[in-house]
Amino acid sequence: NVKLLVTVGGDDTASTANRIARFLEMKRYPIANIHVPKTIDNDLPLPAGTPTFGYESAKDKGAVIGRAVYVDARTSGNWFVLAAMGRSAGHLAFGIGEACHYPMIVIPEMFNKTEITVGKIVNLVISSIIKRKIMGMDYGAAVISEGVFHALSEEEIRKSGIHFTYDEHGHPELGKVSKAHIFNDLIEKKLKELRLKVKSRPVELGYEIRCQTPIAYDLTYCSELGIGIYKLFTEGRTGCMIYVDSEGNVSPLYLRDLQDPETGKIPPRLVDIHSDKFASVVENILNAVTPADYEAAKAYVPDPETYDFHKILNWN
Protein backbone atom coordinates (compact mmCIF):
# COMPACT_ATOMS: atom_id res chain seq x y z
CA ASN A 1 0.00 0.00 0.00
CA VAL A 2 2.54 2.57 -1.12
CA LYS A 3 1.17 6.09 -0.84
CA LEU A 4 2.27 9.40 -2.31
CA LEU A 5 2.98 12.60 -0.40
CA VAL A 6 3.19 15.69 -2.61
CA THR A 7 4.57 18.92 -1.12
CA VAL A 8 4.16 22.19 -2.96
CA GLY A 9 5.93 25.50 -2.36
CA GLY A 10 9.15 27.46 -2.11
CA ASP A 11 12.47 26.95 -0.35
CA ASP A 12 11.04 26.62 3.17
CA THR A 13 8.52 24.02 2.03
CA ALA A 14 11.20 22.21 0.05
CA SER A 15 13.35 22.07 3.18
CA THR A 16 10.41 20.65 5.11
CA ALA A 17 9.84 18.14 2.33
CA ASN A 18 13.49 17.16 2.58
CA ARG A 19 13.16 16.47 6.30
CA ILE A 20 9.99 14.46 5.69
CA ALA A 21 11.73 12.42 3.00
CA ARG A 22 14.66 11.64 5.28
CA PHE A 23 12.33 10.67 8.11
CA LEU A 24 10.27 8.37 5.88
CA GLU A 25 13.42 6.78 4.50
CA MET A 26 14.83 6.24 8.00
CA LYS A 27 11.57 4.65 9.23
CA ARG A 28 11.21 2.66 6.02
CA TYR A 29 7.64 3.83 5.53
CA PRO A 30 6.29 2.93 2.07
CA ILE A 31 5.42 6.55 1.21
CA ALA A 32 6.86 8.38 -1.78
CA ASN A 33 7.60 12.09 -1.22
CA ILE A 34 7.80 14.30 -4.34
CA HIS A 35 8.04 18.08 -4.15
CA VAL A 36 6.53 20.52 -6.68
CA PRO A 37 8.57 23.73 -7.23
CA LYS A 38 5.68 26.21 -6.93
CA THR A 39 6.58 29.78 -5.95
CA ILE A 40 6.33 33.17 -7.64
CA ASP A 41 9.68 34.00 -6.04
CA ASN A 42 11.46 31.72 -8.56
CA ASP A 43 14.02 30.91 -5.86
CA LEU A 44 14.19 27.11 -5.93
CA PRO A 45 17.44 25.60 -7.29
CA LEU A 46 16.16 24.25 -10.59
CA PRO A 47 18.60 24.03 -13.51
CA ALA A 48 19.47 27.40 -15.05
CA GLY A 49 16.70 28.99 -17.09
CA THR A 50 13.92 26.85 -15.62
CA PRO A 51 11.33 28.91 -13.74
CA THR A 52 9.26 27.75 -10.80
CA PHE A 53 5.54 27.29 -11.39
CA GLY A 54 3.75 30.63 -10.91
CA TYR A 55 6.71 32.94 -11.51
CA GLU A 56 5.97 33.76 -15.15
CA SER A 57 2.30 34.52 -14.40
CA ALA A 58 3.19 36.77 -11.46
CA LYS A 59 5.83 38.55 -13.53
CA ASP A 60 3.33 39.08 -16.33
CA LYS A 61 0.73 40.60 -13.99
CA GLY A 62 3.39 42.70 -12.28
CA ALA A 63 4.59 43.99 -15.65
CA VAL A 64 1.03 44.95 -16.62
CA ILE A 65 0.76 47.06 -13.46
CA GLY A 66 4.34 48.28 -13.85
CA ARG A 67 3.77 49.54 -17.40
CA ALA A 68 0.59 51.39 -16.36
CA VAL A 69 2.47 53.00 -13.48
CA TYR A 70 5.26 54.09 -15.83
CA VAL A 71 2.74 55.74 -18.17
CA ASP A 72 1.30 57.58 -15.15
CA ALA A 73 4.81 58.69 -14.16
CA ARG A 74 5.51 60.05 -17.63
CA THR A 75 2.20 61.88 -18.03
CA SER A 76 2.17 63.32 -14.50
CA GLY A 77 5.87 64.13 -14.24
CA ASN A 78 6.20 62.14 -11.01
CA TRP A 79 8.25 59.26 -9.68
CA PHE A 80 6.79 55.99 -8.47
CA VAL A 81 8.34 53.58 -5.98
CA LEU A 82 7.20 49.97 -6.38
CA ALA A 83 7.85 47.08 -4.01
CA ALA A 84 7.72 43.52 -5.36
CA MET A 85 7.47 40.24 -3.48
CA GLY A 86 10.48 37.99 -3.11
CA ARG A 87 11.67 37.13 0.37
CA SER A 88 14.97 35.45 -0.41
CA ALA A 89 15.79 36.58 -3.94
CA GLY A 90 15.06 39.44 -6.32
CA HIS A 91 13.86 37.50 -9.38
CA LEU A 92 10.38 39.04 -9.43
CA ALA A 93 11.51 42.64 -8.96
CA PHE A 94 14.27 42.17 -11.52
CA GLY A 95 11.96 40.48 -14.03
CA ILE A 96 9.29 43.18 -13.74
CA GLY A 97 11.85 45.99 -13.85
CA GLU A 98 13.53 44.50 -16.91
CA ALA A 99 10.22 43.99 -18.71
CA CYS A 100 9.11 47.59 -18.03
CA HIS A 101 12.55 49.16 -18.61
CA TYR A 102 12.56 50.77 -15.19
CA PRO A 103 15.46 53.17 -14.66
CA MET A 104 16.18 51.70 -11.22
CA ILE A 105 15.91 48.15 -9.88
CA VAL A 106 17.07 47.30 -6.36
CA ILE A 107 17.47 43.65 -5.37
CA PRO A 108 19.42 42.07 -2.48
CA GLU A 109 21.84 40.26 -4.81
CA MET A 110 23.26 43.62 -5.93
CA PHE A 111 24.80 44.10 -2.47
CA ASN A 112 27.30 41.30 -2.91
CA LYS A 113 30.25 43.53 -1.97
CA THR A 114 28.71 45.72 0.70
CA GLU A 115 26.24 45.58 3.56
CA ILE A 116 22.63 46.42 2.72
CA THR A 117 21.56 49.56 4.50
CA VAL A 118 18.51 51.79 4.31
CA GLY A 119 20.74 54.68 3.21
CA LYS A 120 22.21 52.75 0.27
CA ILE A 121 18.77 51.67 -0.96
CA VAL A 122 17.55 55.26 -0.82
CA ASN A 123 20.70 56.61 -2.50
CA LEU A 124 20.33 54.20 -5.43
CA VAL A 125 16.89 55.64 -6.17
CA ILE A 126 18.17 59.21 -5.67
CA SER A 127 21.01 58.38 -8.08
CA SER A 128 18.46 57.47 -10.73
CA ILE A 129 16.40 60.60 -10.08
CA ILE A 130 19.48 62.80 -10.52
CA LYS A 131 20.59 60.95 -13.66
CA ARG A 132 17.15 61.32 -15.21
CA LYS A 133 17.16 65.06 -14.43
CA ILE A 134 20.52 65.33 -16.22
CA MET A 135 18.91 63.50 -19.15
CA GLY A 136 16.04 66.01 -19.17
CA MET A 137 13.43 63.67 -17.68
CA ASP A 138 11.66 64.60 -14.44
CA TYR A 139 9.79 61.31 -14.13
CA GLY A 140 10.62 57.68 -13.54
CA ALA A 141 9.98 54.57 -11.51
CA ALA A 142 12.00 52.30 -9.26
CA VAL A 143 11.15 48.75 -8.26
CA ILE A 144 12.61 47.36 -5.04
CA SER A 145 12.55 43.75 -3.90
CA GLU A 146 11.10 43.18 -0.44
CA GLY A 147 14.01 40.81 0.11
CA VAL A 148 16.29 43.71 0.98
CA PHE A 149 14.49 43.85 4.34
CA HIS A 150 15.64 40.31 5.14
CA ALA A 151 19.26 41.33 4.83
CA LEU A 152 18.95 44.46 6.97
CA SER A 153 20.43 44.35 10.45
CA GLU A 154 18.18 44.92 13.45
CA GLU A 155 19.61 48.42 13.73
CA GLU A 156 18.82 49.18 10.10
CA ILE A 157 15.28 47.83 10.51
CA ARG A 158 14.79 50.16 13.46
CA LYS A 159 16.01 53.03 11.28
CA SER A 160 13.27 52.23 8.79
CA GLY A 161 10.71 52.97 11.49
CA ILE A 162 8.78 49.73 11.04
CA HIS A 163 8.16 47.06 13.67
CA PHE A 164 7.82 43.59 12.16
CA THR A 165 6.16 40.49 13.49
CA TYR A 166 7.91 37.23 12.62
CA ASP A 167 6.66 33.91 11.25
CA GLU A 168 7.48 30.41 12.51
CA HIS A 169 10.64 30.36 10.38
CA GLY A 170 11.92 33.57 11.96
CA HIS A 171 11.26 35.68 8.85
CA PRO A 172 9.73 39.17 9.11
CA GLU A 173 6.06 38.97 8.04
CA LEU A 174 6.51 41.40 5.17
CA GLY A 175 3.00 40.78 3.84
CA LYS A 176 1.57 42.68 6.80
CA VAL A 177 3.18 46.01 5.90
CA SER A 178 3.48 48.11 2.74
CA LYS A 179 7.12 48.08 1.79
CA ALA A 180 6.42 50.60 -0.99
CA HIS A 181 5.12 53.12 1.54
CA ILE A 182 8.15 52.62 3.77
CA PHE A 183 10.60 53.09 0.90
CA ASN A 184 8.65 56.04 -0.48
CA ASP A 185 8.63 57.82 2.90
CA LEU A 186 12.37 57.34 3.29
CA ILE A 187 13.03 58.61 -0.24
CA GLU A 188 10.76 61.64 0.27
CA LYS A 189 12.67 62.57 3.43
CA LYS A 190 15.96 62.38 1.54
CA LEU A 191 14.60 64.46 -1.34
CA LYS A 192 13.46 67.10 1.15
CA GLU A 193 16.93 67.19 2.73
CA LEU A 194 18.47 67.68 -0.71
CA ARG A 195 15.81 70.27 -1.61
CA LEU A 196 14.97 68.38 -4.78
CA LYS A 197 11.45 69.10 -5.95
CA VAL A 198 10.32 65.61 -6.86
CA LYS A 199 6.95 64.04 -6.13
CA SER A 200 6.94 60.31 -5.53
CA ARG A 201 4.15 57.81 -5.06
CA PRO A 202 4.20 54.26 -3.60
CA VAL A 203 2.75 51.19 -5.32
CA GLU A 204 2.72 47.82 -3.57
CA LEU A 205 2.81 44.78 -5.85
CA GLY A 206 1.29 42.40 -3.33
CA TYR A 207 -0.74 39.23 -3.19
CA GLU A 208 -2.84 40.16 -6.23
CA ILE A 209 -0.01 39.23 -8.58
CA ARG A 210 0.10 35.67 -7.27
CA CYS A 211 -3.68 35.28 -7.49
CA GLN A 212 -4.22 36.25 -11.10
CA THR A 213 -5.32 33.86 -13.84
CA PRO A 214 -2.23 31.91 -14.93
CA ILE A 215 -0.79 32.64 -18.35
CA ALA A 216 -0.69 29.84 -20.93
CA TYR A 217 2.91 28.96 -20.03
CA ASP A 218 2.00 28.14 -16.42
CA LEU A 219 -1.20 26.35 -17.37
CA THR A 220 0.81 24.01 -19.57
CA TYR A 221 3.67 23.79 -17.09
CA CYS A 222 1.34 22.86 -14.22
CA SER A 223 -0.19 20.04 -16.26
CA GLU A 224 3.27 18.73 -17.12
CA LEU A 225 4.26 18.81 -13.46
CA GLY A 226 1.14 16.94 -12.38
CA ILE A 227 1.57 14.26 -15.03
CA GLY A 228 5.28 14.11 -14.25
CA ILE A 229 4.62 13.42 -10.56
CA TYR A 230 2.70 10.29 -11.48
CA LYS A 231 5.53 9.21 -13.78
CA LEU A 232 8.11 9.59 -11.01
CA PHE A 233 5.81 7.84 -8.55
CA THR A 234 5.35 4.83 -10.83
CA GLU A 235 9.14 4.67 -11.24
CA GLY A 236 9.50 4.41 -7.47
CA ARG A 237 11.12 7.82 -7.00
CA THR A 238 10.98 9.55 -3.62
CA GLY A 239 12.73 12.31 -1.68
CA CYS A 240 12.95 14.47 -4.77
CA MET A 241 11.71 17.60 -6.52
CA ILE A 242 10.18 17.22 -9.94
CA TYR A 243 11.96 18.86 -12.87
CA VAL A 244 10.45 19.33 -16.32
CA ASP A 245 12.80 20.69 -18.97
CA SER A 246 11.91 22.90 -21.95
CA GLU A 247 11.15 19.83 -24.06
CA GLY A 248 8.74 18.43 -21.48
CA ASN A 249 11.07 15.69 -20.27
CA VAL A 250 10.59 14.71 -16.62
CA SER A 251 13.37 13.90 -14.17
CA PRO A 252 13.91 13.97 -10.38
CA LEU A 253 16.14 16.39 -8.50
CA TYR A 254 16.96 14.66 -5.23
CA LEU A 255 16.53 16.92 -2.21
CA ARG A 256 19.53 15.41 -0.44
CA ASP A 257 21.72 16.68 -3.30
CA LEU A 258 20.28 20.20 -3.03
CA GLN A 259 20.36 20.68 0.72
CA ASP A 260 22.93 22.55 2.76
CA PRO A 261 24.90 19.82 4.57
CA GLU A 262 25.01 21.78 7.82
CA THR A 263 21.43 23.07 8.09
CA GLY A 264 19.57 20.52 6.00
CA LYS A 265 17.75 23.41 4.31
CA ILE A 266 17.38 23.98 0.59
CA PRO A 267 19.28 27.22 -0.22
CA PRO A 268 17.40 29.68 -2.43
CA ARG A 269 18.37 30.28 -6.04
CA LEU A 270 19.50 33.89 -6.40
CA VAL A 271 19.57 36.24 -9.38
CA ASP A 272 22.86 35.68 -11.19
CA ILE A 273 24.34 39.18 -11.18
CA HIS A 274 27.39 37.91 -13.08
CA SER A 275 25.33 36.90 -16.10
CA ASP A 276 25.32 38.77 -19.42
CA LYS A 277 21.58 39.32 -18.92
CA PHE A 278 22.07 41.20 -15.67
CA ALA A 279 25.02 43.20 -17.04
CA SER A 280 22.94 44.18 -20.07
CA VAL A 281 20.14 45.51 -17.88
CA VAL A 282 22.58 47.53 -15.75
CA GLU A 283 24.37 48.97 -18.77
CA ASN A 284 21.45 49.57 -21.11
CA ILE A 285 18.28 50.04 -19.02
CA LEU A 286 19.17 51.45 -15.60
CA ASN A 287 19.80 55.18 -15.28
CA ALA A 288 22.21 56.15 -12.51
CA VAL A 289 25.02 58.57 -11.77
CA THR A 290 28.50 57.67 -13.00
CA PRO A 291 31.77 59.67 -12.85
CA ALA A 292 30.94 61.19 -16.25
CA ASP A 293 27.88 62.81 -14.63
CA TYR A 294 29.62 64.41 -11.65
CA GLU A 295 29.87 67.91 -13.06
CA ALA A 296 26.27 68.03 -14.29
CA ALA A 297 25.04 66.42 -11.06
CA LYS A 298 26.45 69.32 -9.02
CA ALA A 299 23.41 71.33 -10.15
CA TYR A 300 21.32 69.04 -7.92
CA VAL A 301 23.60 67.74 -5.15
CA PRO A 302 26.88 69.04 -3.71
CA ASP A 303 28.47 65.57 -3.51
CA PRO A 304 27.70 63.61 -6.72
CA GLU A 305 30.16 60.86 -5.81
CA THR A 306 27.84 59.84 -2.93
CA TYR A 307 25.24 58.88 -5.53
CA ASP A 308 27.56 57.06 -7.91
CA PHE A 309 25.83 53.74 -8.66
CA HIS A 310 29.01 51.66 -8.57
CA LYS A 311 30.40 53.34 -5.47
CA ILE A 312 27.16 52.78 -3.52
CA LEU A 313 27.45 49.06 -4.27
CA ASN A 314 31.24 49.02 -3.90
CA TRP A 315 31.58 47.63 -7.41
CA ASN A 316 34.88 48.25 -9.20
Rank of each mutant, 00 (worst) to 15 (best):
V2C: 11
L4R: 11
L5N: 10
V6Y: 00
V8G: 04
G10E: 05
G10Y: 04
D12K: 13
N18H: 15
N18A: 12
A21T: 01
R22G: 10
K27D: 08
I34C: 02
P47G: 11
P51M: 07
E56S: 05
S57A: 07
A58D: 06
D60H: 12
V71T: 14
V71G: 05
D72G: 01
A73Q: 06
R74M: 14
A93S: 11
I105M: 02
K113G: 00
T114K: 11
G119R: 13
G119N: 14
I121Q: 02
S127I: 03
R132M: 09
D138F: 03
D138N: 14
I144G: 01
I144T: 06
E156W: 08
I162T: 13
T165S: 15
E168A: 11
G170H: 06
G170K: 11
K176D: 07
V177E: 09
K189Y: 03
K190M: 02
K190T: 04
K190F: 04
R195Y: 02
L196P: 00
L196A: 05
S200K: 06
S200L: 03
L205I: 15
Q212I: 10
T213W: 00
L219T: 08
L219C: 12
C222G: 14
S223D: 08
E224D: 13
L225H: 03
G228K: 04
I229K: 08
L232K: 05
E235W: 04
G236I: 08
G236T: 06
R237H: 12
I242E: 01
V244Y: 01
G248Q: 08
N249H: 11
N249M: 07
S251P: 00
L253M: 13
L253H: 03
Q259T: 08
Q259F: 00
E262R: 14
P268E: 10
H274G: 14
D276W: 08
S280I: 00
E295S: 12
A296R: 13
V301Y: 05
P302N: 10
Y307G: 09
H310Q: 12
